[in-house]
Write a protein that binds this DNA or RNA. Structure first.
Lengths: 205, 205, 205, 205
DNA sequence: TATGAATGAGGTTTCATTCAT
DNA sequence: CATGAATGAAACCTCATTCAT
């Protein structure tokens, strides 16, 4: 995982325990209500603090969003790059990308939910440039994996790569619903089922 | 003093042309910004009207959302039921459901986008009970199609039906991105590609 | 979107000094303009605060009304009950009820004015149930005092008790006009004159 | 009754039947909700017309109020003056004033209710100068009747004339509650009971 | 005369943010 | 670090009034 030792602008003591607690509360609230509908009062209430006091730890609501998502996305990009570097068979790559993405989702289901639901807003929000950048990086990893598979004749060429890519992305981002705390299945099992579905399809051959 | 949420009597001309225009404007704005972030001023601006004047036509922002989504969802449920009634082979049913859903998405891509992005908020919004009900109806159609296919041995039984159902739903709801005005592909082609992907999988056999 | 009427958690410091100041300002404004015509901006202006900031202390305009009136009415009911418990002669009871009511009016003339002028609206306003309940309690105290006097043959039986009760209520509630800050007479003198008028009538015998 | 053949400013056809109907609807609505809380939409709804169409008949909401109240008040002043002119005994005068006032209340209970509840607003509303003037005239009639009775030694002198006057005014204005449509007693009976109460008091001598 | 659409001002309320203590 | 008070902008919505048809 990337280490967020420095925060944008002149924000205070970097990362205390309190800061982490607040961020966890914010993560939950953002996941449940969405970043637009979530208010700083909601976050304060969940963290056991008054909303005004949040500003001792974070410069803005946006900064919280960034601080929640950037590490998650960065770590995903790193994981993806490692997989691409050490794997050669396209279906193996895709299978492992799915596994890594689902594992991330398992590690931080709230973050996954935020990404799935609020990506649309990140462009207009200030200070989320890095989030947007990392999201693009993730997408590009999926895209090259798919294109490579098609180029090597292992993936079907009669489906538009962009459709494949985005559909896989959607399916994987929705995996949080099948695992704790929302679902009941262990992450690796979810990953396996999604991989089967994506690679082999629903129909029995 | 307290805001009366009840529909004012005397207003509400059922559906005039102006009403339709405003609804179209609202549909666009909701799709682009999300129902929470979209303001009545945004809608008014797009419709060429002052925000207060919207209330000559609609009782609330919520009512607009309902009026946009209910017909779309109802028509989808009807289409789904017709397909289920006249088709017997599970893979045929699923293929046709996908086709119908994508066709809907093509007919009203903005509505699809709203559903995809804002479903989470509908439960807490007042006056959207019918929307929620129809959404449940849609989901139940997908679910029974999938379960039937599994029961008849045509769909794989090693993937949780709920995972299958939700994943298909996600993929189909995202189809608006590949068609006009956002994408460039004709609807029936998108439907065909998604059906292939879902039923046969990405891998070349 | 829909306005949540529930009291926000986290706010509401029970009663600070500021809260009292605002409540006093609100009391004046409500008394002068009436609860419907009084705007939160009026109240804010009188309290030296922006109208939005009022909501740091109160959940709604209605809550202010309730918080102004409930204690006044409750205290009146208590006073009435004490009188009824320790007094036996009907004319003595009535005289003392009038005295207590006028004393209340003297203690909080603005509240009396609000009650006199805006009772009609309380039923339709949200959160004023307790106000309505206490008002009924006050009325019932007047009614039983009058009926008791008639039953014991001390009050005339040729006038409908409901007319008597309501008329006395009206006269007493209007007492604020004769005392400071609107009038000039001391409260006990007003009470004495009203009691004479009510019990003995205007005519010289 | 004074004939309102001319309306203030350049308002249309003077008085058609429709105008009367609307005015009746407005009277009811004003009485029930109060002139501030009553909206032109309420009035239109009760009159079976759209609110905008009201302005073909009246220049403003205020004009309606004026047109409702001025004739009532003028007629009361005339009646009072006639009584004062043809009666000499103070208690007879007062008794007949009460009778006349209650009769007015019976004839137009809604108007009485409006006067009782909304007098406070008339000063700030535009175009109600004549209403205010006539209300002053009414008050002055009550005042002189009372003062005359005191001067002639027929009314008690140990109660402030202003208190007497205002209290009588309150009681009489509240009479609408005891007669149809709100109460059940015939007007002359209400008048008789109020006169007894005011002149002779509640206590049995 | 009436309708239906619109205006524009203003109402209550929300909310991110600031700051003295 | 946290509180509690406040700000100021902006949100949703209401309402008297106007006007073309």
């Amino acid at each position: 995982m990337a280490k967020p030792t420095t925060t944008r602008a002149g924000t205070r003591p970097a990362d205390s325990a309190r800061r982490r607690e607040i961020l966890d509360a914010a993560t939950e609230v953002f996941a449940e209500k969405g970043v637009v509908a979530a208010t700083v009062r909601d976050i304060g209430a969940r963290a056991g603090i008054l909303s005004g006091s949040l500003y001792h730890h974070f410069a803005s609501k946006e900064e919280m969003v960034a601080e929640i998502l950037v590490p998650v996305l960065r770590s995903q990009v790193e994981a993806f790059d490692a997989i691409a570097a050490e794997t050669s068979a396209p279906e193996q790559i895709l299978r492992r990308l799915i596994g890594a993405a689902v594992a991330q989702t398992a590690a931080d289901p709230h973050a996954a939910r935020i990404i799935r639901n609020d990506t649309r807003h990140f462009g207009e929000m200030q200070g989320l440039d890095e989030v947007v950048r990392q999201q693009r990086a993730v997408t590009s990893r999926w895209t090259s994996a798919v294109k490579q598979g098609i180029a090597r004749g292992r993936f079907r060429s009669d489906v538009d790569p962009s459709i494949v890519t985005k559909s896989i992305g959607d399916v994987v981002l929705g995996a949080y619903r099948f695992m704790r705390p929302m679902g009941r299945m262990p992450a690796n099992q979810v990953a396996e089922q999604l991989a089967r579905l994506i690679l082999d399809g629903l129909e029995v051959r």
